[in-house]
Design a protein around this nucleic acid. Structure first.
Length: 874
DNA sequence: CGGATCGAC
DNA sequence: CTATGTCGATCCG
């Protein structure tokens, strides 16, 4: 049904409106501009895409994929060259970046990620033999932070409320956390790690990244003695270490390493069986296995051996096991360390093919930085694996913010950071506490004071002073508020902080008076540290800009980077792999108060309208001449490439500024000067800032969709009436902006099948409330009591219910979805600009149940219905 | 800048 | 008993 109807709908829509739509244009593009297609294909091939399944499709499909769209047979109508050009620009922009990234791929580093297995639980088990054979979890009744593998067999996992875990596994022992002990153990581990990379990056108590490139280099010349480690008989705390550890056969060393008496004797069999199948084991075969002498073991010089050595030492020292990943960058290393967990390691060879093979079917969720929500959003777009991510890159570049799609592109190419970012200075420090309801003003104040005291202590430890104090309040209805205040001079003492926090709190208490402020959480945060100021100040200099920019050009990069690191603070997240403009963009967006006043998109536009991209050679020359800046220097403008003669920095900055704006104007006038076949550009509000122009043209090409929201209780009406006026007044009838699309997908995608987690602020029912309220499993969608007490079964019911049940019900009710197509002239009225078409959607009523009167009255939105489009993106 | 909210660990 | 605590990032006005 859906497979055919949407296309028909689209065709119909076009007939009615005489409007070309995005997919249609792409289609036309194919027929009328084969040469462009060739260019696109060339670019695509150049990048040498991963996964050949879709890539070998016929050209049209290929093109469609490049545009991130599905095949769509459409009729042919008038062609809008201007729009086509823009689309091409967009598509090539993505592929250009991809090419650039590919060219700068760095496979020279050996990065490892070490991750302790079930850390907290393992420590507890180590120190308390009674816990060994039991399923245990560390945490509290309301929250578990870790569980051992035994407990995991029952479905007890980290991030699960303890009382749910108890249901799943009644014999579960919940051990209260003992952070001091974990810190101690962590320190022991870190001491080992420091031997391999003194600059290693500790991510948490149980995780760290190391760059062992240098160590490997040195290690090549190490005599065996330097790589020999003695095996302790038994271990300091326990005596049940298997004898095999010290037996002599070489292969037993690996056995020793893979044995985890403490953790895994109760592991599910597959955990232990999987070892031999692991590709990394194959690698081991080729390399020299560590030689086990009588009671010592010698490790080889390869990365694999180094990591074995590290893990061996960790186990010897702490009786705990760790898993590790070895890869050319941090992102891959992290994924690798998960691969053979627990107590295993995995390496991606430092060559492009190995990386690509690894990435190919990798589910995006495994990638660090892609969490539950992002996964869901991407899933809604049909993206599950990294290959999908790559194939939909063009679409992603339209839907997501630049930062987001850039990072997606990095991921899909298997790229990641290769350097241990020095501990970025902290930007804020906070403390918050949850408690049972407090509503007395005095108690609130004294609590606040206490928090301020603690915060001041922490602050003092790091010798920081800040200017902004923020309080965070969560009332008994789980509504969160933050209130901030910035003062002129930095503060750091408890008294100073409290003075500010108290005022903020007072305002809130007074605001509700005579109602008491019923809180369940209070927090105090301080930010705006002075070090941050310094950075901003330094950042303003054009010198830093040029130098940072030059990293891009410098093929070695690292040397320059190293030298500048201390003088020039780079914006976060910029690596030397990014393009000049990308870098400039992120830098500028990072610091708005830069000498350059233009928004990121401006530059993007500039770049887009200059297909003959700037020659790197030229850039390089330029930057070289621009370096070694003294007070008076000969500068060359990075924009116009003209030498600016001797001048001071300030004058030069002014020139660059002007040059930038000139470029921008040129760019704009080109856009504006197009024949009026596309009235779009000329219709743009002249007041719009340049970057908005670019932005709106982007949005203009995304078939936009809006959801008409029905007032509660009216969900069964077909909503195809109502005037244009009314629609535009409806806040939900706006064109779909990127962000709202994303938000929309997020809010409406089916829930995870572990627990029924909904955004609490939206008042949706959660599994927990279902359980608690009804003492039985009640599906929050169909509201029917479920026979099963099995959480998994229940969850799958909810999923099914979400995905199917309501679709049918609503189909009966003819709920409608409004599809807005971009108009030729946004100002022209016209029912023609907006066509409504009934499509398959599902609706899910928001539950007002958890909303208080207070919050309900504050909501500007009516209690409306949220809809989920069914497979719109399939 | 302030504020809300997200996302991750 | 809707995980919590901490922190950075982002979007919007």
């Amino acid at each position: 049904m859906w497979s055919s109807s949407p296309n028909e709908s689209l065709a119909e829509l076009r007939k009615e409106t005489c409007l070309p739509d995005f997919q249609y244009i792409v289609f036309q593009l194919h027929w009328y501009f084969p040469f462009l297609k060739v260019i696109l294909s060339f670019l695509g091939l150049f990048i040498c895409t991963m996964g050949n399944t879709k890539e070998n499709n016929n050209d049209k499909d290929d093109l469609m994929l490049r545009m991130g769209l599905n095949d769509n047979k459409a009729g042919m109508e008038g062609l809008d060259k201007e729009k086509i050009n823009k689309i091409i620009m967009e598509a090539t922009k993505v592929d250009k970046l991809a090419m650039e990234l590919e060219q700068n791929r760095n496979l020279c580093c050996t990065i490892i990620h070490i991750d302790m297995d079930a850390f907290y639980a393992a420590v507890e088990m180590r120190d308390n033999p009674e816990l060994r054979d039991k399923p245990i979890a560390v945490g509290s009744m309301s929250m578990l932070s870790t569980s051992n593998y035994h407990a995991r067999r029952f479905g007890v996992r980290a991030a699960m409320p303890g009382f749910i875990a108890k249901r799943l596994c009644p014999q579960l022992t919940i051990v209260p956390p003992n952070f001091d002990k974990y810190r101690e153990v962590s320190k022991e581990v870190r001491e080992i790690l420091a031997d391999y990379d003194p600059n290693f990056m500790a991510m948490s108590l149980d995780e760290a990244y190391l760059n062992i490139t240098k160590h490997l280099e040195e290690r090549q010349n190490w005599p065996e003695d330097k790589r020999r480690y003695f095996i302790k008989r038994g271990n300091p705390t326990e005596n049940d270490k298997p004898e095999t550890v010290i037996s002599g056969a070489p292969e037993l060393n690996e056995a020793a390493l893979s044995i985890s008496p403490l953790l895994f004797e109760d592991s599910p069999p597959h955990l232990q069986q999987q070892e031999p199948e692991i590709p990394s084991q194959a690698h081991f075969e080729e390399q020299r296995d560590p030689q086990v002498l009588q009671n010592s073991v010698i490790f080889g010089t390869s990365a694999d051996e180094v990591v074995k050595e590290i893990r061996f030492r960790i186990e010897q020292k702490t009786s705990l096991t760790a898993s590790a990943g070895i890869a050319p960058n941090t992102m891959l290393a992290k994924v690798c360390s998960d691969k053979n967990k627990p107590n295993g390691q995995y390496q991606i060879s430092p060559n492009r093919q190995a990386v690509m093979d690894f990435i190919k079917d990798l589910p995006i969720r495994k990638v660090p930085g892609i969490g539950k929500v992002t996964e869901k959003m991407l899933k809604a777009l049909g993206i599950v694996t990294c290959s999908d991510l790559y194939q939909k890159r063009a679409l992603l570049s339209l839907l997501f913010s630049e930062t987001s799609w850039h990072s997606f592109l990095h991921i899909s190419l298997g790229l990641g950071s290769t350097q241990m970012e020095r501990d970025g200075e902290r930007k804020s420090m906070s403390i918050e506490r949850t408690f049972s309801e407090i509503n007395k003003a005095e108690e609130l104040y004294s609590l606040c004071q206490e928090l301020c005291n603690d915060l001041a202590q922490d602050l003092q430890r790091e010798g920081l002073k800040g200017k902004t104090v923020t309080i965070k309040l969560k009332n008994v209805n789980f509504e969160v508020k933050t209130r901030a205040s910035t003062v002129a001079a930095v503060v750091s003492t408890a008294e100073e902080i409290f003075a500010i926090a108290k005022e903020l709190l007072k305002v809130e208490i007074d605001a509700d008076y005579p109602q008491p402020l019923r809180l369940r959480l209070m927090g105090v945060r301080i930010s705006g540290f002075s070090s941050e100021e310094d950075r901003k100040h330094r950042q303003k200099s054009i010198i830093s800009f040029l130098k940072v920019g030059s990293h891009t050009i410098d093929p070695v990069g690292s040397v320059l980077e190293k030298n500048n690191q201390d003088q020039v603070m780079k914006p976060p997240e910029t690596s030397h792999k990014q393009s000049f403009f990308t870098k400039k963009r992120s830098e500028m967006s990072w610091n708005h108060q830069d000498a350059f006043k233009f928004e990121p998109e401006t530059i993007q536009g500039f770049q887009v309208s200059q297909p003959s991209s700037l020659s790197k050679e030229k850039m390089k020359e330029n930057l070289e001449t621009s370096e070694n800046l003294d007070d008076y220097q000969i500068f060359t403008c990075p924009i116009c490439f003209k030498e600016q003669g001797r001048m001071c920095l300030e004058t030069f900055n002014r020139h660059v500024d002007e040059c930038l704006s000139r470029t921008l104007i040129d760019c704009d006038s080109k856009m504006m000067a197009v024949p009026q076949s596309s009235s779009f550009c000329s219709e743009v509000n002249p007041d719009l800032k340049p970057h908005n122009i670019i932005e709106s043209h982007l949005v203009d090409f995304v078939p936009s969709i809006s959801i008409d929201v029905l007032p509660q209780g009216k969900s069964t009406e077909v909503l195809n009436t109502g005037t244009e006026e009314e629609h535009s007044q409806n806040q939900y009838s706006n064109l779909w902006s990127k962000s709202s699309l994303v938000e929309y997908i997020y809010q409406n995608s089916p829930h995870e099948n572990e627990g029924y987690h909904a955004k609490t602020s939206s008042g949706q029912t959660t599994l927990q409330t279902c359980l608690l309220r009804d003492k039985t499993l009640v599906c929050p969608v169909c509201n029917l009591e479920q026979r099963t007490s099995d959480l998994m079964l229940f969850n799958s019911h909810v999923d099914i219910c979400l995905n199917k049940g309501l679709i049918q019900e609503l189909r009966k009710d003819k709920a409608s979805l409004v599809v807005n197509y971009p108009t030729e002239n946004p100002k022209s009225n016209g029912s023609s600009s907006k066509i409504q078409k009934a499509v398959n959607i599902i609706a899910k009523p928001k539950r007002p149940g958890l909303m208080t009167q207070n919050s309900a009255s504050k909501k500007t939105k009516p209690n409306n219905f949220k809809y989920t489009i069914d497979s719109f993106f399939k």
